[in-house]
Design a binder for these strands. Structure first.
Lengths: 232, 232
DNA sequence: AAGTATTTGTCCGTATGTATC
DNA sequence: GGATACATACGGACAAATACT
């Protein structure tokens, strides 16, 4: 027999109940909600515990408290609850499969846009990253984040900050999971092949050829998938 | 002269400082951090304010407190900080332009996958949504979220939960902004045209034609962009 | 204009439960 | 079991900001 990890703490309970109230529409955006004392009484907790819950919701931009006035639901509380749930999905250990499939959908398109609009400065940055990678492999100081930074630089050039941030989250998650993977000890030969593919993509971007750049990125990510553990 | 919007509250200050400590690597994942009392003293705040900050970080899955033991940084605190920043980017009023461009990148691919793997049940659900829309237009009870639900249903069929949630966030943001837009008072003729495009997409999915379904979704979103206010 | 009530911000003290040795 | 360290939770108090009269 084992304990259920410990009973949920009071403030977490309160948070969930309040989120439910908002999602069910009983409390509406912009409205004033009861005072700390009233809430504490109806939830049957102390004012301190109530405040812990309220401060969490305030930090999440769902409510806002003002001294002397009271506490109000923010106008976009619903969207912020949604953003919260997105972060939570992002947190839940995603399957490698789904993470890579998502990259396969996003990155080729970002590469297309990058190739269409890269400035000279941006091209130089990309090229420098390439050179750094080659040098790092030669001196055995290569580490995975170097490869990722090439991908992120392309995403940056695409100038879609939303997808940039989204891809950044995916990348970090992959790097965290990568520790356990074959990927971490690729042979020098495999690394060079990967970098060669990077150069191939870079060339298409440099030549202002979006269609070709997009295709090459697609193939590149497909190839990377081969190094992942097989599904059973 | 004006007030600086009100001085930042203590617990927010503390949160930011702690996040910095983690990002700078002074506190490492898995490590134990000082006790509430010690922290309160070094940040020069009361234990209550300290707890408010800690509870926020705990809810964000960055730290975890255990009675009798102490407070620890979670192993994946870094990724969770990242997920947090994603939520924050999502929250910041995104330009319509970027939101729609992101849909243009994601949705055609999701539609491709939906067409490739939709079950009979899933097809029936989609068809029902279509019929509901047509009826709603006929009886003048159509509202924008009906149109969005068709798109979300397709995303669901794609079975990429990560992109599904991401798209859901985008959709909510768009609906929030839509209130101010021309879109809200489309003519009946325009609405019927939109629904006709939905049917067109649906047919391709039903016929198991991923390439065609993808193309039609792309065109559909492109058309929707025409109703947006022009950039200056 | 002044004073009072309301509400959040902040702090303190204390009792209880839980884990460690 | 007993002692210690720590988080959990409660209640009381006063300050600061705002609203009301």
């Amino acid at each position: 027999m084992y304990k259920p990890t410990s009973r949920t703490m009071l403030y977490e309970e309160v948070i969930n109940q309040i989120l439910d109230l908002i999602k069910k529409g009983l409390w509406k955006p912009g409205e004033k909600i009861p005072t700390e004392m009233e809430l504490a009484q109806s939830f049957e907790v102390s004012r301190n515990s109530m405040r812990e819950a309220l401060k969490v919701l305030e930090h999440l931009k769902i409510i806002q408290s003002k001294a002397g006035k009271g506490t109000y639901l923010l106008e976009n509380s619903i969207q912020n609850i949604q953003a919260l749930e997105l972060a939570s999905v992002m947190r839940e250990a995603n399957s490698l499969d789904q993470l890579m499939d998502t990259r396969l959908i996003i990155e080729p398109e970002l590469t297309y846009r990058a190739a269409a609009q890269a400035s000279l400065d941006e091209l130089n940055n990309l090229e420098k990253l390439l050179k750094d990678s080659i040098e790092a492999v030669a001196t055995n100081t290569y580490f995975p984040s170097l490869g990722f930074s090439f991908h992120m630089e392309i995403a940056k050039i695409s100038r879609n900050t939303l997808l940039y941030k989204f891809l950044e989250s995916i990348t970090l998650e992959l790097m965290a999971q990568r520790k356990l993977l074959v990927l971490s000890h690729l042979s020098k030969k495999d690394l060079l092949k990967e970098i060669e593919e990077h150069r191939f993509i870079f060339e298409a971007i440099k030549q202002n050829n979006p269609e070709e750049a997009k295709k090459r990125m697609y193939v590149h990510i497909q190839n990377a998938k081969k190094f992942l553990p097989v599904k059973e």
